[in-house]
């Protein structure tokens, strides 16, 4: 298990270095000068040059890449061109919203998907299965920003139970913070839960026809007991893969939902940084996301190995 973990760790580092090159090159190639964007259409050329010098944009690409990567190794993500404040601090602020929101949405996803998937698989072909399959189809088809707007119209505008958006900050209290994240988390969770429930259902149905399930039933377990004790664990590999992908997506991919609920999350930060050509923020945040995705995959692979000992040997 330890050897396996070490092997994965080395390939993880290699992926990060390649990613840093790709991210830097991609962001720097895009036309648009951050200094000119800041100063607008009335600025004189010498003013733009002065700001470029102040931001360090007059240095060569190689120099800027090396100082950026060097900073990354020491945990220094650089200073934002537009905010003029350390990127690490800005990202930390945003993570206080994005991370809890992602976890909240993922918990809701699992809480909805597991019962739905298990019940549907247990009654394959029955009325309940058909109902759930139809519902999850709908859940995937409905765009989540539209669903979010419906939630706002019902719960904020008409009933007044929640505010229409915004985030009061955790210093306002845990409950108020959670309340502000509830509607966004539901809007995010619905399509994810639908996907997960369908994957769980089909994976369970596959395992239910395996020999060991028949053996378990022959030993005298009920269909439900066999499903919970034997089929579930064996059906977990595709489910874990999906959960891993979903968590990575929820951290950064919530940008549309963040906009609808005007939450100060990471997705909105990146979007804003792209339009303002705040290159250093885009580069550093994308690198962090790459790191997060790689780490989540790493954890998921460890989880596979834990579920299925056959996977512990490096291939």
């Amino acid at each position: 298990m330890i050897g396996f973990a070490l092997y994965r760790l080395v390939s993880l580092l290699a992926s990060l270095i390649v990613a840093s090159l790709v991210v830097f090159a991609a962001v720097e190639i895009v036309p648009g000068d951050p200094a000119r964007f800041m100063l607008g259409i009335n600025a004189q050329p010498d003013t733009v040059a002065a700001l470029r010098a102040e931001l360090g944009l007059d240095r060569s690409l190689v120099e800027r890449y090396l100082s950026w990567v060097g900073g990354l190794f020491t945990g220094d993500l650089g200073v934002s061109y537009t905010y003029r404040s350390p990127v690490s601090g800005i990202v930390a602020e945003r993570l206080q919203v994005s991370l809890p929101l992602a976890v909240y949405a993922l918990v809701l996803t699992v809480l909805i998907a597991f019962p739905v998937g298990m019940i549907a698989a247990g009654r394959q072909g029955g009325a309940v299965d058909t109902l759930f399959t139809g519902a999850t189809q709908l859940g995937i088809a409905v765009p989540n920003f539209w669903f979010a707007l419906l939630l706002i119209l019902l719960f904020s505008v008409n009933l007044g139970w929640f505010s229409a958006g915004g985030f009061p900050g955790w210093e306002a209290g845990l409950l108020l913070g959670l309340q502000a994240l509830t509607l966004p988390a539901i809007a995010l969770a619905l399509p994810q839960a639908s996907i997960l429930a369908r994957v769980l259902r089909s994976s369970l149905i596959d395992t239910l026809s395996d020999d060991y399930i028949r053996t378990a039933r022959a030993k005298g377990l009920s269909a439900g007991q066999a499903l919970r004790r034997h089929a579930l664990r064996n059906a977990m590999i595709p489910v874990f893969t999906i959960i891993g992908l979903q968590f990575s997506f929820l951290i950064a991919g919530a940008v549309i939902i963040e906009n609808v609920f005007f939450l100060p999350g990471l997705g909105r930060l990146v979007l804003q940084a792209i339009t303002q050509r705040d290159l250093i923020v885009v580069e550093s945040v994308v690198m962090l996301l790459v790191l997060a995705v790689i780490l989540v995959n790493f954890v998921i692979e460890l989880a596979y190995a834990w579920i299925d000992p056959r996977l512990r040997k490096p291939s």
Binding site: I152, S156, G160, A164, G165, N259, F261, F262
Partner: peptide, 17 residues
Amino acid sequence: KFISEPTAAYAAMLAGD
């Protein structure tokens, strides 16, 4: 308060936020 999305602005105004 910074609300970039027009529909969010509409909802925030109507909800009294």
